[in-house]
Design a protein around this nucleic acid. Sequence first.
DNA 1: TTCCAGGAAATGG
DNA 2: CCATTTCATGGA
Length: 310
Amino acid sequence: MPLVMTTVTTERFGCEGCMDLDEPLDLVSTLESGQTFLWSREDQEMFSGHAKSAPVFTTARVHKSGEVMVLRVGQDDDGLFWESTHSDAEEYVREVFRLNENYQQIHQAIIENDPNGVIEEAIEEFRGLRVVNEPLFPTLISFLCSPQIGVEHIHEMVQKLSAQYGDSVVIAGHEYSAFPSVHQLTGVTEDELKELKLGYRAEYVAETVTAIDSSSLPLETLHSNPADARSHLQEYHGVGPKVVDCVLLYGDGRDSIVPVDTRIAQAVEEYYPEYTELSREEAARELEDLFGEYAGHAQLYLYHYWQATG
DNA sequence: TTCCAGGAAATGG
DNA sequence: CCATTTCATGGA
Protein backbone atom coordinates (compact mmCIF):
# COMPACT_ATOMS: atom_id res chain seq x y z
CA MET A 1 0.00 0.00 0.00
CA PRO A 2 2.21 2.85 -1.24
CA LEU A 3 1.75 6.12 0.56
CA VAL A 4 3.22 9.13 -1.19
CA MET A 5 4.39 11.77 1.25
CA THR A 6 5.86 14.81 -0.41
CA THR A 7 7.06 17.78 1.57
CA VAL A 8 6.65 21.13 -0.11
CA THR A 9 8.43 23.95 1.61
CA THR A 10 6.78 26.94 -0.05
CA GLU A 11 4.47 29.04 2.06
CA ARG A 12 1.87 29.28 -0.67
CA PHE A 13 0.65 26.70 -3.13
CA GLY A 14 2.46 28.47 -5.96
CA CYS A 15 -0.23 28.98 -8.58
CA GLU A 16 -3.37 31.06 -8.56
CA GLY A 17 -6.01 32.52 -10.80
CA CYS A 18 -9.46 34.00 -10.91
CA MET A 19 -12.58 33.62 -13.00
CA ASP A 20 -15.51 35.84 -13.80
CA LEU A 21 -18.72 33.89 -13.35
CA ASP A 22 -21.52 34.17 -15.88
CA GLU A 23 -23.91 32.72 -13.31
CA PRO A 24 -23.87 32.93 -9.52
CA LEU A 25 -22.07 30.24 -7.54
CA ASP A 26 -22.73 29.70 -3.84
CA LEU A 27 -19.77 27.72 -2.53
CA VAL A 28 -21.23 27.11 0.91
CA SER A 29 -24.52 25.58 -0.15
CA THR A 30 -22.88 23.72 -3.03
CA LEU A 31 -20.07 22.16 -0.99
CA GLU A 32 -21.70 21.66 2.41
CA SER A 33 -25.07 20.24 1.53
CA GLY A 34 -24.33 16.57 1.09
CA GLN A 35 -23.45 16.29 -2.59
CA THR A 36 -19.71 16.02 -2.08
CA PHE A 37 -17.58 15.34 0.98
CA LEU A 38 -14.21 15.97 -0.66
CA TRP A 39 -13.87 19.65 0.29
CA SER A 40 -13.20 21.20 3.69
CA ARG A 41 -13.96 24.70 4.84
CA GLU A 42 -10.78 26.34 6.06
CA ASP A 43 -10.88 28.78 8.88
CA GLN A 44 -8.36 31.19 7.46
CA GLU A 45 -8.16 34.32 5.46
CA MET A 46 -8.63 34.47 1.75
CA PHE A 47 -5.39 34.25 -0.16
CA SER A 48 -3.30 37.12 -1.39
CA GLY A 49 -5.00 40.37 -2.06
CA HIS A 50 -8.64 39.37 -1.84
CA ALA A 51 -11.40 40.03 0.63
CA LYS A 52 -11.53 37.61 3.52
CA SER A 53 -15.18 37.74 4.38
CA ALA A 54 -16.21 34.68 2.41
CA PRO A 55 -15.36 31.09 3.40
CA VAL A 56 -12.52 29.28 1.66
CA PHE A 57 -12.69 25.60 0.71
CA THR A 58 -9.82 23.22 0.07
CA THR A 59 -9.52 19.76 -1.49
CA ALA A 60 -6.68 17.47 -2.47
CA ARG A 61 -6.90 15.06 -5.35
CA VAL A 62 -4.68 13.14 -7.70
CA HIS A 63 -3.55 15.31 -10.58
CA LYS A 64 -3.38 13.77 -14.05
CA SER A 65 0.40 13.75 -13.64
CA GLY A 66 -0.04 11.38 -10.70
CA GLU A 67 1.04 13.96 -8.15
CA VAL A 68 -1.21 15.21 -5.37
CA MET A 69 -2.85 18.47 -6.32
CA VAL A 70 -4.06 20.78 -3.57
CA LEU A 71 -6.77 23.17 -4.64
CA ARG A 72 -8.35 26.00 -2.71
CA VAL A 73 -11.24 28.18 -3.85
CA GLY A 74 -12.87 31.30 -2.50
CA GLN A 75 -15.06 34.14 -3.64
CA ASP A 76 -15.43 37.87 -3.36
CA ASP A 77 -17.21 40.51 -5.40
CA ASP A 78 -14.78 40.11 -8.27
CA GLY A 79 -15.49 36.43 -8.86
CA LEU A 80 -14.11 33.01 -8.06
CA PHE A 81 -10.49 32.75 -7.01
CA TRP A 82 -8.33 29.68 -6.76
CA GLU A 83 -4.85 28.76 -5.65
CA SER A 84 -3.19 25.43 -6.20
CA THR A 85 -0.01 23.44 -6.36
CA HIS A 86 -0.66 22.99 -10.08
CA SER A 87 -1.02 25.64 -12.76
CA ASP A 88 -3.84 23.91 -14.64
CA ALA A 89 -6.13 23.73 -11.60
CA GLU A 90 -8.72 25.89 -13.34
CA GLU A 91 -9.70 22.88 -15.45
CA TYR A 92 -10.57 20.98 -12.28
CA VAL A 93 -12.52 23.92 -10.90
CA ARG A 94 -14.51 24.23 -14.10
CA GLU A 95 -15.30 20.53 -14.06
CA VAL A 96 -16.36 20.26 -10.41
CA PHE A 97 -18.61 23.34 -10.47
CA ARG A 98 -19.75 22.90 -14.07
CA LEU A 99 -18.62 26.41 -14.95
CA ASN A 100 -19.00 25.76 -18.66
CA GLU A 101 -22.70 24.88 -18.38
CA ASN A 102 -25.46 27.25 -19.40
CA TYR A 103 -27.35 27.58 -16.15
CA GLN A 104 -30.03 29.86 -17.56
CA GLN A 105 -30.95 27.08 -19.92
CA ILE A 106 -30.89 24.45 -17.16
CA HIS A 107 -33.07 26.59 -14.89
CA GLN A 108 -35.48 27.42 -17.66
CA ALA A 109 -35.88 23.77 -18.58
CA ILE A 110 -36.79 22.56 -15.09
CA ILE A 111 -38.99 25.59 -14.38
CA GLU A 112 -40.98 25.00 -17.55
CA ASN A 113 -41.51 21.35 -16.66
CA ASP A 114 -42.65 22.08 -13.12
CA PRO A 115 -46.45 22.08 -12.83
CA ASN A 116 -46.69 24.07 -9.59
CA GLY A 117 -43.92 26.68 -9.48
CA VAL A 118 -41.99 25.32 -6.52
CA ILE A 119 -38.80 24.90 -8.49
CA GLU A 120 -38.84 28.49 -9.67
CA GLU A 121 -39.22 29.70 -6.08
CA ALA A 122 -36.46 27.38 -4.93
CA ILE A 123 -34.11 28.64 -7.64
CA GLU A 124 -34.81 32.22 -6.58
CA GLU A 125 -34.11 31.40 -2.96
CA PHE A 126 -31.01 29.28 -3.54
CA ARG A 127 -29.44 31.08 -6.44
CA GLY A 128 -25.88 29.87 -6.90
CA LEU A 129 -26.51 26.35 -5.68
CA ARG A 130 -25.11 23.96 -8.27
CA VAL A 131 -24.95 20.24 -8.85
CA VAL A 132 -21.33 19.18 -8.48
CA ASN A 133 -19.45 16.92 -10.86
CA GLU A 134 -16.99 14.90 -8.79
CA PRO A 135 -14.90 11.76 -9.54
CA LEU A 136 -16.76 8.44 -9.60
CA PHE A 137 -14.90 6.26 -7.10
CA PRO A 138 -14.66 8.78 -4.24
CA THR A 139 -18.33 9.58 -4.76
CA LEU A 140 -19.30 5.91 -4.65
CA ILE A 141 -17.44 5.26 -1.39
CA SER A 142 -18.74 8.51 0.11
CA PHE A 143 -22.34 7.53 -0.47
CA LEU A 144 -21.67 3.98 0.71
CA CYS A 145 -20.88 5.67 4.01
CA SER A 146 -23.98 7.87 3.93
CA PRO A 147 -26.91 5.74 5.22
CA GLN A 148 -28.57 6.98 8.38
CA ILE A 149 -26.03 9.60 9.38
CA GLY A 150 -25.71 13.34 8.94
CA VAL A 151 -23.74 15.27 6.34
CA GLU A 152 -21.05 16.32 8.83
CA HIS A 153 -20.54 12.75 9.94
CA ILE A 154 -20.18 11.51 6.35
CA HIS A 155 -17.64 14.26 5.75
CA GLU A 156 -15.66 13.07 8.77
CA MET A 157 -15.59 9.50 7.48
CA VAL A 158 -14.42 10.58 4.02
CA GLN A 159 -11.70 12.81 5.47
CA LYS A 160 -10.53 9.99 7.74
CA LEU A 161 -10.34 7.59 4.80
CA SER A 162 -8.29 10.18 2.89
CA ALA A 163 -5.91 10.88 5.78
CA GLN A 164 -5.43 7.18 6.52
CA TYR A 165 -5.08 5.67 3.05
CA GLY A 166 -4.67 8.43 0.45
CA ASP A 167 -1.62 10.17 -0.98
CA SER A 168 -0.76 13.40 0.77
CA VAL A 169 1.44 16.48 0.66
CA VAL A 170 2.55 18.83 3.41
CA ILE A 171 2.49 22.54 2.71
CA ALA A 172 3.55 25.04 5.33
CA GLY A 173 3.08 22.46 8.04
CA HIS A 174 -0.41 21.42 6.98
CA GLU A 175 -1.08 17.98 5.54
CA TYR A 176 -3.50 17.62 2.64
CA SER A 177 -4.72 14.15 1.65
CA ALA A 178 -6.39 12.99 -1.53
CA PHE A 179 -9.13 10.38 -1.43
CA PRO A 180 -7.52 6.94 -1.82
CA SER A 181 -7.59 4.99 -5.07
CA VAL A 182 -9.22 1.58 -5.47
CA HIS A 183 -5.77 0.06 -5.20
CA GLN A 184 -4.99 1.89 -1.97
CA LEU A 185 -8.19 0.68 -0.33
CA THR A 186 -7.83 -2.89 -1.56
CA GLY A 187 -6.97 -5.20 1.30
CA VAL A 188 -8.13 -2.81 4.00
CA THR A 189 -10.14 -4.92 6.43
CA GLU A 190 -13.57 -4.32 7.86
CA ASP A 191 -12.04 -4.00 11.33
CA GLU A 192 -9.64 -1.31 10.18
CA LEU A 193 -12.54 0.63 8.70
CA LYS A 194 -14.52 0.25 11.90
CA GLU A 195 -11.64 1.93 13.71
CA LEU A 196 -12.45 4.93 11.53
CA LYS A 197 -16.00 4.73 12.96
CA LEU A 198 -17.73 3.63 9.77
CA GLY A 199 -19.94 1.27 11.76
CA TYR A 200 -21.88 -1.23 9.67
CA ARG A 201 -20.82 0.73 6.58
CA ALA A 202 -17.32 -0.77 6.98
CA GLU A 203 -18.65 -4.02 5.53
CA TYR A 204 -20.13 -2.16 2.54
CA VAL A 205 -16.85 -0.39 1.77
CA ALA A 206 -14.59 -3.40 2.27
CA GLU A 207 -16.67 -5.73 0.10
CA THR A 208 -17.32 -3.15 -2.62
CA VAL A 209 -13.64 -2.23 -2.93
CA THR A 210 -12.72 -5.91 -3.21
CA ALA A 211 -15.35 -6.43 -5.89
CA ILE A 212 -14.17 -3.43 -7.91
CA ASP A 213 -10.53 -4.45 -7.61
CA SER A 214 -11.19 -7.99 -8.79
CA SER A 215 -13.44 -6.88 -11.66
CA SER A 216 -12.04 -7.13 -15.15
CA LEU A 217 -13.53 -3.78 -16.11
CA PRO A 218 -12.43 -0.54 -14.46
CA LEU A 219 -15.20 1.34 -12.68
CA GLU A 220 -14.92 4.25 -15.10
CA THR A 221 -16.25 2.15 -17.98
CA LEU A 222 -19.66 2.71 -16.41
CA HIS A 223 -19.59 6.19 -17.89
CA SER A 224 -19.70 4.84 -21.43
CA ASN A 225 -22.46 2.36 -20.58
CA PRO A 226 -25.13 4.61 -19.10
CA ALA A 227 -27.86 2.13 -19.92
CA ASP A 228 -26.82 -0.52 -17.41
CA ALA A 229 -24.77 1.62 -15.02
CA ARG A 230 -27.53 1.56 -12.42
CA SER A 231 -27.97 -2.21 -12.32
CA HIS A 232 -24.21 -2.72 -12.39
CA LEU A 233 -23.58 -0.38 -9.44
CA GLN A 234 -26.42 -1.89 -7.44
CA GLU A 235 -24.69 -5.26 -7.49
CA TYR A 236 -22.17 -3.86 -5.02
CA HIS A 237 -22.90 -4.60 -1.37
CA GLY A 238 -24.44 -1.54 0.26
CA VAL A 239 -25.41 0.19 -2.97
CA GLY A 240 -29.18 0.53 -3.05
CA PRO A 241 -31.54 2.65 -5.16
CA LYS A 242 -30.82 5.98 -3.47
CA VAL A 243 -27.04 5.59 -3.23
CA VAL A 244 -26.74 4.58 -6.87
CA ASP A 245 -28.69 7.64 -7.96
CA CYS A 246 -26.43 9.96 -5.94
CA VAL A 247 -23.37 8.32 -7.48
CA LEU A 248 -24.72 8.77 -11.00
CA LEU A 249 -25.78 12.39 -10.46
CA TYR A 250 -22.82 13.73 -8.45
CA GLY A 251 -20.11 11.30 -9.55
CA ASP A 252 -20.91 10.59 -13.19
CA GLY A 253 -22.39 13.85 -14.43
CA ARG A 254 -25.81 12.43 -15.21
CA ASP A 255 -28.05 15.47 -14.85
CA SER A 256 -31.33 13.65 -15.32
CA ILE A 257 -31.07 11.39 -12.25
CA VAL A 258 -33.28 12.15 -9.23
CA PRO A 259 -32.14 10.59 -5.94
CA VAL A 260 -35.09 10.28 -3.58
CA ASP A 261 -34.12 10.30 0.07
CA THR A 262 -36.33 10.86 3.14
CA ARG A 263 -36.35 14.61 2.63
CA ILE A 264 -37.24 14.49 -1.05
CA ALA A 265 -39.95 11.97 -0.19
CA GLN A 266 -41.41 14.52 2.23
CA ALA A 267 -41.20 17.27 -0.36
CA VAL A 268 -42.99 15.02 -2.86
CA GLU A 269 -45.77 14.51 -0.33
CA GLU A 270 -46.15 18.27 -0.07
CA TYR A 271 -45.70 19.44 -3.66
CA TYR A 272 -46.26 16.40 -5.89
CA PRO A 273 -48.90 14.43 -3.95
CA GLU A 274 -49.83 12.41 -7.03
CA TYR A 275 -46.58 10.46 -6.50
CA THR A 276 -47.00 9.94 -2.76
CA GLU A 277 -48.34 6.40 -3.05
CA LEU A 278 -45.42 5.27 -5.19
CA SER A 279 -42.28 3.63 -3.85
CA ARG A 280 -39.26 5.92 -3.71
CA GLU A 281 -37.76 4.22 -6.74
CA GLU A 282 -40.94 4.69 -8.73
CA ALA A 283 -41.27 8.29 -7.59
CA ALA A 284 -37.67 8.89 -8.69
CA ARG A 285 -38.40 7.66 -12.21
CA GLU A 286 -41.61 9.70 -12.41
CA LEU A 287 -39.79 12.88 -11.33
CA GLU A 288 -37.13 12.20 -13.97
CA ASP A 289 -39.87 11.93 -16.60
CA LEU A 290 -41.52 15.08 -15.31
CA PHE A 291 -38.47 17.36 -15.17
CA GLY A 292 -36.53 15.89 -18.08
CA GLU A 293 -32.90 16.31 -19.04
CA TYR A 294 -31.92 18.34 -15.95
CA ALA A 295 -34.17 16.67 -13.40
CA GLY A 296 -31.28 16.10 -11.00
CA HIS A 297 -30.86 19.86 -10.62
CA ALA A 298 -34.57 20.20 -9.80
CA GLN A 299 -34.08 17.56 -7.11
CA LEU A 300 -31.23 19.56 -5.53
CA TYR A 301 -33.22 22.78 -5.38
CA LEU A 302 -36.21 20.92 -3.97
CA TYR A 303 -34.02 19.30 -1.32
CA HIS A 304 -32.85 22.69 -0.04
CA TYR A 305 -36.20 24.35 -0.38
CA TRP A 306 -37.84 21.67 1.72
CA GLN A 307 -35.06 21.81 4.32
CA ALA A 308 -35.58 25.54 4.67
CA THR A 309 -39.35 25.43 4.94
CA GLY A 310 -39.84 22.12 6.71
C1' DT B 1 -32.24 8.75 27.83
C1' DT B 2 -34.25 8.91 23.60
C1' DC B 3 -34.36 10.36 19.00
C1' DC B 4 -32.66 11.35 14.58
C1' DA B 5 -29.36 11.78 10.70
C1' DG B 6 -29.47 12.35 2.26
C1' DG B 7 -30.67 3.74 3.60
C1' DA B 8 -29.86 -1.00 2.66
C1' DA B 9 -29.85 -5.97 3.73
C1' DA B 10 -32.05 -9.68 5.92
C1' DT B 11 -36.19 -11.63 7.35
C1' DG B 12 -41.17 -12.96 7.48
C1' DG B 13 -45.53 -12.95 5.52
C1' DC C 1 -43.93 -9.36 -4.14
C1' DC C 2 -44.37 -5.93 0.12
C1' DA C 3 -43.81 -4.56 5.12
C1' DT C 4 -40.89 -4.81 9.21
C1' DT C 5 -36.63 -5.15 11.65
C1' DT C 6 -31.86 -4.52 12.30
C1' DC C 7 -27.65 -2.52 11.43
C1' DA C 8 -23.08 1.44 14.30
C1' DT C 9 -22.18 6.09 15.42
C1' DG C 10 -22.43 10.76 17.29
C1' DG C 11 -24.77 14.80 18.49
C1' DA C 12 -28.83 17.27 20.24
